[in-house]
Design a protein around this nucleic acid. Sequence first.
RNA 1: GCCCGCGUGGUGGAAUGGUAGACACAGGGGACUUAAAAUCCCUAGGCUUUGAUGCCGUGCCGGUUCGAGUCCGGCCGCGGGUACCA
Length: 901
Amino acid sequence: MVARRISPTPNALQEGTGMSRYSAAEIEPKWQKAWDEAGVFHAERTADKPKYYVLEMFPYPSGRIHIGHVRNYTMGDVVARYKMATGHNVLHPMGFDAFGMPAENAAMANGGHPKDWTYSNIDTMVAQMKPLGFSLDWTRMFATCDPEYYGQQQALFLDFLEKGLVYRKNAVVNWDPVDMTVLANEQVEDGRGWRSGALVERRELTQWFFKISDYSDELLSALDTLDNWPAKVKTMQANWIGKSRGLQFAFSLIDAPHGHDRVEVYTTRPDTLMGASFVGISPDHPLAKDLEKSSPEVAAFCEKARQGGTTEEALEKAEKLGFDTGLKVRHPFDTAWELPVYIANFILMDYGTGAIFGCPGHDERDHEFATKYGLPIIDTFLPTEGDHDIQAAPFVPTKSEKVRYTRLIAGDEVQTGDEAVNAAVDFCEKNGVGHGVTKFRLRDWGLSRQRYWGCPIPVVHCDACGVVPEKKENLPVQLPDDVSFDIPGNPLDRHPTWRDVPCPSCGKPARRETDTMDTFVDSSWYFARFTAPRADTPTDLTEAEYWMNVDQYIGGIEHAILHLLYSRFFARAMHICGHLPETAKEPFDALFTQGMVTHAIYQTTGTDGRPVYHYPEEVVLANVGGKQRAFLRENVELWMKSEGVSSEDDPLFTAAVAEALIGTEVTIIPSAKMSKSKNNVVDPVQIISQYGADTARWFVLSDSPPERDVEWTASGAEAASKHLARVYRLAAELTDGEADTAGSDEQLLREMHKTIKDVTLGIDSFGFNAAIAKLYGFTNTIAKSKAGVVAKRMAIKTLAQLMSPMTPHLSEEIWQTLGGEGLITEAPWPQADESMLIEDTVTLPIQVNGKRRGEIDVPKDMDKAEVEKLALATDAVQRALDGAQPKKVIVVPGRIVNVVM
RNA sequence: GCCCGCGUGGUGGAAUGGUAGACACAGGGGACUUAAAAUCCCUAGGCUUUGAUGCCGUGCCGGUUCGAGUCCGGCCGCGGGUACCA
């Protein structure tokens, strides 16, 4: 945008203070350069200010930034800049969570190397982020795929191994029998591999695990100390950890087949033991595996039961299948009572003991199973009042509810489930039937991934020495570059020169571990690495002690459980190994979960029957009869050309849309999380290049509360830009001077102090949209004010300061125009003068029976009786009372009057 | 399936249990201009009415309260997570 192209004569204002029209393109690079030269965002330890560490969850380098990134990082930037203005030494770093599957998928789909794809994406995204003017210390940037980073991660792994925090055991994975490869959960669609279409099997592999379960109790109880975390996140984590008290005991097997004389089970409902009707074991249970060897039927069933994905959702939703082994166990309280043993597909070896007893009367799943296989359904308790048809549906009240026991094990006949469970555990222990056990739902964290693009696990397998840790001086164990992705599977596995190495212990030929680490490992300690990103140990304790904890962490709610729980575990583990101070065991002091930016997904069906996803810009939307329809843009353009239709307003176009004659219709899936794989990401670059960074920043913060999801629409960007131009103009035109009017100055300054207070509160509480609304209001006040130049100058300078966390470039420009000292970025935050906030009178709404009927203006400190008298005297109340006496009058001072009739 | 959220005008949304709809977008009307752009002003939940008054109204049903968008119970819808997407 070129200012004043038409009028060649620059006015005095232009010569003196810059341009008279707002031009982001000219302002923004100028101030970014100024900040850069002054090094204002470079973080260093200092004793003279309190430190403040702001961190937004770092991005995956998917290719280009999307509007969700802009929203997320702008929020963090507002906090960082605000804290800087309030006298803090701020650390605000940025990096990339750069390992993961999309890079390998890209290599498979388009050739090339995951490394090149990833670093090129990072370059692009950094280039897109820099013009946004974030207050980031770019000197600290790293990507988790940098050997310097993952080498230190390998060092951490070795330390964890030494401390017994890592171990190996078997665990199931999704196995694609056609591609002969392990699939991620998202690569399993309806139980089939996404590329091969083959039925997925669950297969056991030996894998590495972090012993997070040792910390279950601590991770649970420490949630109470996280006062500045959202309650919902703490609830989700508490439920996920899932502490429960139950009974572990054994059923004795009749005839002890294959040497198994008992089946160990765990139950959280021992009070329902008298309602048992079967015992279920996992297809991976040792007993099932032994039976499988001698029985083709069992083998066939187990094969079928192992089909399908490994997710909890898939298991829960899958049709419940059982196989009667013909084996029987004895009921512990009645040795004559025999229960059948079933192998069932919904029992996972990972949970509890891999075996359960089924109580169909009080469990949905068991009920479904019993009904299907004709097993008895026995109640053990019923409602205290009324009846319940247990055959038709299970009776499953919450454990805190009182029920009446019909087959009581211990305790009172009428008691709550919780009481009954405790009584039953005590009774069983006394009678030698098992023992009470506290269990956690939380399982150990499997970190092995059978993939190339991840951090290599630094161990070597030696026939003589077993699993041998790599020597620290040999770290990093670097990924080899010469790999190809033309065949499915892990290229490390078929890379002999990388894989075959001498044993670090005995020197004989051995093999490297070819599994790499889960990418959650990468993101579980990056916050600590940012405190000393170039250290030649995982952290530098001096730096970590100074900068940790993260004072404000900002990220998506989708990370509420896994990432945030793993990070909490990692901080503890790092402390044990001396990489973090004790005080950093809970690494995030405050957490804010911002909402996601959602967008419709546009989907068509490809020739192979699989869904094809289209970018928003590839789709033409048309509104026909109030219904939105979508078509592929290339089709539409061809059609328009061939029909000679030039505009979408043409009736011919509308008619053709109604009949879907303009090409492939696109299915619109509304409001979904922006996801690279669904192509529903919105590119903010256009908004930035058209209106500038400040407009984009202002725009993503206004109108919607930060914690809520927003459906993306660009309809407000122009308005945001107009507003910023208006603020700019207010400042630029101020020098013209205006006459003072008595009282106007004070009125404006009172409004200014109120705005300072409101905006400060808004920023402190993440109410950015509300703060922006106040700033709109204050801008209007200034524009209409008759105050003199001095007061107005002060008001506009304050406005610029209050806006500076959101629109830093514009604010700097105004600050400079109005003669502010130094950079606004380094200027102290304005303080509200309390004496200017006091109001003498207050407007009280008057309600009659809770409905507003009028209002009165009264002095702020008028006593209740007086207020009541005035309120009753108002026309509205008199009319409503119609001569009657009110029953009651409620006066809430400074708030409201309610007359009850 | 299970766990956690969310639901307010045409739209985004505001509202410590106390005037529902602040602020903004789109809309309608007007001023300025030869014209346009830019800018400024007015208007705006629904129904009813000339207008005032009035009635209805925060997903649905019920409850607590002088008073409920807000608290409680039950539904419906949508979103997130569900341990190998990150």
